[in-house]
Amino acid sequence: MNKTLPTRLKSATLALLAAGLLAGCASSGNPKDPIEGFNRAMFAFNEGLDSLIVKPVATGYDAVLPSPIRTGVTNFFGNIDDLFIGVNNLLQGKIPEAFSDLGRVAINTTIGLLGVLDIATDAGLEKHNEDFGQTFGRWGVGNGAYVVIPVFGPRTVRDTVGLVLDVQADPVANHRPKGERDFAQVLRLVNGRANLLAADKVVEEAALDKYSYVRDAYLQRRRNLIHDGNPPRESEASLDTDRSLSVDARLEEPRAEAPSGGAVLVVRMEPVDTK
């Protein structure tokens, strides 16, 4: 009766989600993508935004700037990322990796001229890829539904929560004065997009349906990242060909290579992930 506004909002959202879920199940039948209708609309919006503004700017940027400068820009923002990659490795219990990341930041920020040169990689400190979404995944949080977010693009519910934290912790977004912050954010976006121009052409060539191609690639990629490149081969029970099942059995081994700290979580996460 006396529901407060947030509670009401919450139940409204839940109802909406449930409705979307039901509608989605009826239409697409893909359990990983229950709100496919909404997602397709959002995807089309993002594609439009990209082809009208972001991609042309990125193409110009790519054409005008010599590649050493673009590399410098990539490295500069990559160095800032490394700090939080280190924090996330720490949160995931991957201590040696975390120290390696922090070592990277120390080396690249100093000898690497504020991160413009990636000397740490040449010195043998490998660059990692971590974020809060992966940390949650590592902790056993399942994907949740696939969601396409305006501007940011493909995510899952879990990774959306991760994204909020990523943005909260992002030194660039928190930088002041605002003028510099905005410049840095635009530069990072454009540079990042420019790095994807080649991949983009290949996806256009490959995809039968770009929406589902990008979705499934995103889901596979995230799964791979959470397991640091060694995901257990996806259960292909749905295939029900004896042959591929036996292949699965043989490919199961890489699981053993997963860093010991996370092994328990990895196993626990599976039932949620495979669906």
Binding site: D216, Q220, R221
Partner: peptide, 17 residues
């Protein structure tokens, strides 16, 4: 697999659809 994305199984959902 490129970056963990299988070029073959990535088609699975769209083929099924």
């Amino acid at each position: 697999e490129v970056g963990g994305i299988s070029l073959v199984t990535n088609y699975r959902e769209s083929f099924a659809a």
